[in-house]
């Protein structure tokens, strides 16, 4: 059962990712990106990281994808890109990526990764929350500081040319 689920999620993720990069229309691309995020969230569920999965859905699909869609609307869907003049770059990229995949595959074969043990209490939400708020409390605070800075920065950026 989980194998089937894994295959489904993996296929959805990879397919949607390719579509996100290659779809001609940016709006479709953004939608495909959302589906890819959903697939990754599914894989998180399979790895017993349910909270992270929900977090992924909330942040990526709820916030990032929506933000991207807004931007596409604001910038104008017509804003495109010049078609790639150099086929060489595409070819090079394809070669590089296939090299990457091949080598990682070879490495993964050489090193046998066992299937994960059942999780038990190691994946419990209690453990995650205590860890997040106690062991990593300071880091969490810094994260919020960074987040505040990012929000202020984003506001400042979009405000500057109001006068022009």
């Amino acid at each position: 059962m989980t194998d089937l689920l894994f295959l489904a999620f993996a296929a959805v993720t990879i397919g949607a990712a390719i579509l996100a990069i290659e779809a001609r229309d940016l709006v479709y691309g953004a939608a495909a990106l959302g589906i890819a995020f959903l697939g990754v969230a599914g894989l998180f569920f399979l790895l017993d990281a349910a909270y992270v999965g929900w977090f992924q859905i909330a942040v990526y699909i709820g916030a990032v994808v929506v933000l991207i869609l807004f931007t596409v609307m604001l910038v104008g869907p017509k804003m495109g890109e010049t078609p790639l003049g150099l086929k060489r770059v595409s070819l090079l990229a394809a070669i590089l990526v296939s090299l990457l995949l091949g080598m990682t595959g070879a490495l993964a074969n050489a090193t046998a990764f066992p299937g994960p043990d059942s999780c038990g209490s190691g994946c419990s939400l209690t453990l995650l929350s205590t860890s997040l708020l106690k062991s990593y409390g300071v880091q969490l605070e810094f994260m919020s500081l960074v987040m505040a800075a990012a929000v202020i920065g984003a506001l400042a950026l979009s405000k500057t040319d109001r006068g022009q």
């Binding site: 989980t2 194998d3 894994f6 993996a10 993720t13 990879i14 990712a17 390719i18 990069i21 890819a36 990754v40 894989l43 399979l46 790895l47 990526v97 296939s98 990457l100 995949l101 990682t104 595959g105 993964a108 046998a112 990764f113 066992p114 299937g115 994960p116 059942s118």
Partner: peptide, 17 residues
Amino acid sequence: MEPLSSFFAVSVILLGI
């Protein structure tokens, strides 16, 4: 359960894309 290497494979493919 799926071996972990399958997850790594998906991850690498995503990176490649």
